[in-house]
Computed example of a mutant assay.
Amino acid sequence: MVIDILRNLTDHIETVAVCKKQAVYHNGLSAKGFYYVEQGLVGLYQVSENGKESLLRIYGPGSYFGYRSLFTAQRYPSTARAMLDSTIVRINVNDFKSLDTISPDLASYLMQEVCFELGEAEKRLMQFNAFSAKKRILDTIFYMFQTYPEYPWTYREIGEYSGTDTTTVIRYCKILKGIGILERNSRKPQPVNLQQLADYRKSLLIK
Results as ranks from 00 to 15, higher is better:
P77C: 07
Q190F: 07
P104M: 08
A198P: 00
A17D: 12
L41V: 08
S98F: 00
L6H: 01
Q190S: 10
G33D: 08
A23Q: 12
L204T: 09
M126L: 11
D85V: 03
I102E: 13
G119R: 08
L176D: 02
N8M: 06
A80P: 02
V24K: 03
L9S: 03
S186R: 11
A82M: 08
R57W: 15
Y155K: 04
L205P: 00
E49L: 14
Y172E: 11
W153C: 03
G43V: 04
T101P: 00
L118A: 13
G62W: 02
Y155S: 09
I141Q: 07
V169A: 06
L41K: 05
Y67W: 11
S48M: 09
G43R: 04
T15Y: 01
T147Q: 13
Q112V: 09
F65S: 04
I3D: 13
K123D: 09
D95F: 04
L176K: 02
V89R: 06
V42R: 02
L125D: 03
Q22W: 03
K123F: 05
G66L: 08
Y35A: 03
A17T: 11
G43K: 02
L55R: 10
V93T: 08
L6A: 04
N8D: 13
R124L: 07
A80I: 02
T147A: 11
P149H: 07
T168G: 01
E160L: 01
M1W: 05
S86E: 07
C115I: 14
G180S: 10
S30D: 10
S98L: 03
L56R: 11
A121E: 13
G62P: 04
Y143Q: 12
T168S: 12
G163K: 03
V89I: 15
L106D: 02
I181Y: 07
I58T: 12
Y109Q: 11
D100H: 11
D139G: 06
N129L: 15
R75K: 15
F65M: 01
K177Q: 14
V89A: 01
N193L: 04
E160Y: 00
N92M: 13
Y155H: 13
Y59E: 09
S98M: 15
M126W: 08
I175M: 12
S54I: 05
G60F: 02
P77M: 06
R124V: 02
G159Q: 03
M111K: 10
Y45T: 06
R201F: 05
Y64H: 05
Q39S: 12
L106Y: 05
A130D: 09
P191W: 06
V18S: 03
V114L: 12
R171Q: 12
